[in-house]
Amino acid sequence: MDEISRLFPERLQKELNRILAHRWDTLQEIRLRLQQPIELIFNQTHEQLAHLVPDKHDFTHIIQQLSDYSLYRMEEELREGYMTIEGGHRVGLSGKVNTLHGSVKAIQYITFLNIRIAKQKVGTANKVISYLYQQGYVNTLIIGAPQTGKTTLIRDIARMISSGWKHIPSNKVGIIDERSEIAASIKGIPQHDVGARTDVMDACPKAEGMMMMIRSMSPEVLIVDEIGGQKDVDALMEALHAGVAVVCTVHGHSLEELKRRPGVQVLLEGRIFERFILLNRTAASGYTYTIYDANQRNLLTEKMGGYS
């Protein structure tokens, strides 16, 4: 976790290392607020560190480290409100926003930071993957509420498709990573392992990205995050007609709920997808997934691998 602790000034760094000694594994977020105690979010609990209160100087230090002492290069990040750092971790920024003609220009005073620890869970898709293959990969829709492991799963699916598994040979994979969450690229270089035969279109609007990818990189499988809205659906249809298998995720709690959503409805009723994977997370059973076939019959319900 060197990439993260190096951001902090010495005083905070020492304390955090002491407090987190062997709990880095379960750490999800480190939240900093100016003149407020640092907050640590773990898988199950959260903690306030009353004796660690970052001041203005600490914030300047962290921001200098984040920006490589060159805040002027962070124009886009300051507009988007987040940046990706080495190791695929993401830092959310908040504070006073400057606007120009009604749209956000940049965050000027950064007073809130949220460092989200990225953990690539290799092996999540081990069991799922065999359900996605029938003499070639089939179109798959992954459905889940936030924080149910959608992105983690789709990342591992991408990795497995592009490196092959058991007797199945590897395939060319194209990832449209609009929110830089699947591959977590810095300057176009993926920070997560997404497989050797994977091309990534980072920070690209999905609809355009899908067409660009098909035109220029001829992928065999397209991986897309967070489908929603008419434009995305249109582009998706186009991709399907081009003969590319698509694996994508969508926000939702159940198949029934999705059927009522106008934008996404088409995807479910048009019999486009042959597999649906519904992700769930409950306090009692942890992360689980259910796989449905094209007729929405239940094929398998299981606990997700790789999660504790």
Binding site: S67, L71, Y72
Partner: peptide
């Protein structure tokens, strides 16, 4: 001031 501002300010 170096490295603490956006392009214009810098």
């Amino acid at each position: 001031t170096l490295g603490k501002h956006d392009f214009l300010q810098q």
